[in-house]
Structure formats: structure tokens, C-alpha cells
Design a protein around this nucleic acid. Sequence first.
DNA 1: CATACTATAATTGTATACAAAAAAGTCAAC
DNA 2: GTTGACTTTTTTGTATACAATTATAGTATG
Lengths: 242, 242
Amino acid sequence: MSQISELKKSDTKRDGKKTQDDIVYAHIFDAILEQRLSPGTKLNEESLGEIFGVSRTIIRRALSRLGYEQVVVLRPNRGAVVACPTIEEARQIVFARRVVEKAVMELVCDNAQKKQLEQLRQMVRDEQACFDRGDRGAGIRLSGEFHLLLAEIANNPPLLSFQRSLVSLCSLIIAQYESGAKSHCSYDEHFELIDAIAGKDKPRAVSLMMHHLDHIEEKLSLDDEIATDDLKAIFSHVRNPR
Amino acid sequence: MSQISELKKSDTKRDGKKTQDDIVYAHIFDAILEQRLSPGTKLNEESLGEIFGVSRTIIRRALSRLGYEQVVVLRPNRGAVVACPTIEEARQIVFARRVVEKAVMELVCDNAQKKQLEQLRQMVRDEQACFDRGDRGAGIRLSGEFHLLLAEIANNPPLLSFQRSLVSLCSLIIAQYESGAKSHCSYDEHFELIDAIAGKDKPRAVSLMMHHLDHIEEKLSLDDEIATDDLKAIFSHVRNPR
DNA sequence: CATACTATAATTGTATACAAAAAAGTCAAC
DNA sequence: GTTGACTTTTTTGTATACAATTATAGTATG
């Protein structure tokens, strides 16, 4: 396995006041958001330690944080794997996200300053640029970060922290169930959202957001039976002769 | 400091498949829910290790989980303290809780089975019994656990996990800002909520819940200027002569 | 007496060693 | 060729040692 970059003291200082496990956490989080890490991938502690140039202590801290966010599943004595939400779980996650995004949208319509609207627009322009130049990974990440920026503008730290977890989980869901080549979260819709916010049109902003989330959920319905890994269901027609 | 109980392997096994840090986490969480741990209390790693009979490794894991839930604040190099939400933060937490409780209530009205209604009623009876016999700590904890049981019945794990964080934070807010002797969350209101759920009366259930949360927020408005620790505001009339 | 400075103690951060558990491999028996 | 018991290797869980940082006490100085 190749070394990404040894995180030495000097790096830590350059990165601000972030501690080493924050950095490891951020790298893994980004990899998930960019869909470079697929659902189900085993996250070996020692390998990760070598990659980042730190001891397992740091890796374990980062993994347990990801585990708390449910992006990673920690199986006792059996290590950590990137989460593979079932369709049932995916529906619950999207539902939770509807709840949060609605609240965020209403707060943002009330609070958003001109400067923040420009920040949002810039981020969507970046997102567009990424897709245009074919950098799908970065595009997907920025698409997720757009929703995180909305939660930040809503100015409610608990909701933001919950949103982090939900956005990364949705990224996994899309990775697992996206069938066609169609991009999952188009920037046009993001521009429309910004317009609604700028016009302080709460009902329209919320309805656009709900529509936005419908796209994710539609894929779940389509793939309903196909994508399942429930062996019992797959072989339900086989009768046990005993 | 006295030893509560050494958590040895045997205990761990008796407690099911919970690992040691789960147990430490649960003990601290309960202490916060019962308001035996006050906002601002320093949580020394070595002391906690002695109390629970485990090494700092385990304590640190439990603390970082509590830190993720924001119930405990982890100050780099300066240790962990029980969170002291400011009034501003308290408002944000209560807002987030309104959002979650509304969604939970609607799900519960749709899904609740007879058996679960009885479970809810039993819990509120227990709560009432605690207050009647003067066990305020356990009463407060059960009051919080009632709301967690609702989130469980809503059958949405992400929302449940968020609710855990919000309920414990609210317990801290109440500990910090509760002025009178009046109990913060009366069981009568819980019985009313159950009735609304049993009648599948969504609007009433939601409105009762919002009213329930108003009680917490009212205290914040009352103590608005008094309880603040913003030194700059307190001494704003003092002119700096330089 | 207050303040700044230094030495010391206490506490947190990280790496590592070892124990415990799970996974992978070996090989004989059928 | 498959199955099952045994051994070895790998991986995770926990304690501990040491380094880095912060807090405390003591001391000298104005």
C-alpha cells in the first residue's frame, strides 16, 4: 500500500489547530463523500496507520467517530467496514434528511446574508466546473458540501452535525443504488434553490429541496428487489426438505 | 474517590454483548440525565479510570463518544468537561429538538402498536412513582427516556441517535437554567401525549409536544439577562481609559 | 503586596507491547 | 473433493510507558 502523506507535527501545524485524528477522519470522510471508498470496504487499522503514518491509536479514534456517525460500521472484534445501508435503512436515512433539510431551508431563508448567498453560488459554480472537466469525485463531494454549507448558514450546530452524518450516508446510498450514468444531484437544482432562498420564498425553497431528495428515493424504488443482498429472500422458493 | 464497581470480564459478559466503553459511556450518560453531573464538571481521565476500574484507553473512548454527542466538551490538551450550553446554544438545541420531536410524533402516530402504547404508559407510571417517592433523579431520567422510547417507536435509527444527544443536552439546559422547584417535565403531559397517539390524532399530538417544549424555552427567556456569563456585556458600562 | 518567572507536578496525547479473538491455512479422514 | 479438527497467522482490544502540554506552587523582584 502506498503512503498518501506522513502526518508529522509540521503538517499538523500547517493544517491549523486540527489534531491528527481530525485529519485522518477528514480524509476518510472525504473519500466516502467522493465515492472513492465503496460501501462494504474493510478498513484495516494497521494499513490505515501505515498510509497516514500514525499509530493505530489515532486510526481507532477516527474510526470510532465515523462509527458514531454511522458512516462506518464497527463490528466488535471484527473491525470496521464502510456502511452498506439496506433499502430499508436508506429510506429511513432519506426520511431523516427530509426532516433536517426542511428545517435548515426555513432557517436559511430567514437568516441568509448577501455574502452567504454569494458563497453558495460560488460553491455551485465550482461544482459545475468539476463536472464539466470530468472530475466526478470532486463534483460529488462539492454537491454534498453545498448541503453542509446550507446547514452552516442555518446557524444551528446540532442540526449541522446531524446533517454531516446524513449527507455522507446519502453519498453511500447513491454509490450503492445509483443505476444509470445520470448524475445524482444536478447543480441546476442547486442554482434554483439559491434563487428561492434569495427571494425568501420559503414554500418554494422547501418544495424544491423535497423534490431534490425525491431523486435519491426514486432509485431505491426502482432497484427495490434487484439490489438486495438478503439471501433468505433470494432463496425463499427453496424448500428445506428436512 | 470511591469505586462504583470494577468492570471485569465477568461483568461485561453479564451485561450482554456490551463492551467496557459502552458501560462507562452509559454510566456517565445516565449521571448527566439524572443531573448528578452538573454542567461544567471536569472529567478527569485517571479518576474515572479508577472509579470504573479500567484504563484511560476505555475512558477516552467513552469521553470522545460523549464529545461527539456534544454533551461533553473536549478541549484539546485541557481535558473534558460536562457541557454548559449558553442561552444562545440552548435555544438552538431546543429548536433542533422541536424539529425532531415533530417528525417522531408523526411517525409514532402512524406506527404505534398497542403493545408499544402500553410500554409508554408503563414508563410514565414508573416516572410518576419515582417523583411520588421523592426520587427526583430517577424521575428526571425516566422523563428523558420516555422521549427516547418515542424515538425508538418511530423506528428511525438516525433520528433516535440524534434524539439521544438532544435529550441529554436538554437535561443539562434544565439543570443550568431551572429556577423554581417546579418539575420541568410533568408526567401528566406525558399521559396526554399517549392519549393523543392512541387516538392517532397527529395535530394534537404534535401541538402537545410543542407545548411541552415551550416549558423549557420559557425558563430561558425569564433568565435571559441574569444567567449570562458574558463578562463583556456585564461590564459594558466600564470605559477603558486607554 | 502584587507581579513575573521558574521549577515542579498533574494531565493529556501518542506509540507500543501484549492479550484475546477471529481468520486463514494445513492436513488427515472419509 | 469435501468436511472437520487443529495450528498458525492476522487483526482487534486493552493496558501501559513515555512524550508533550498545561496547571500549580514557589520564589525572587520591584
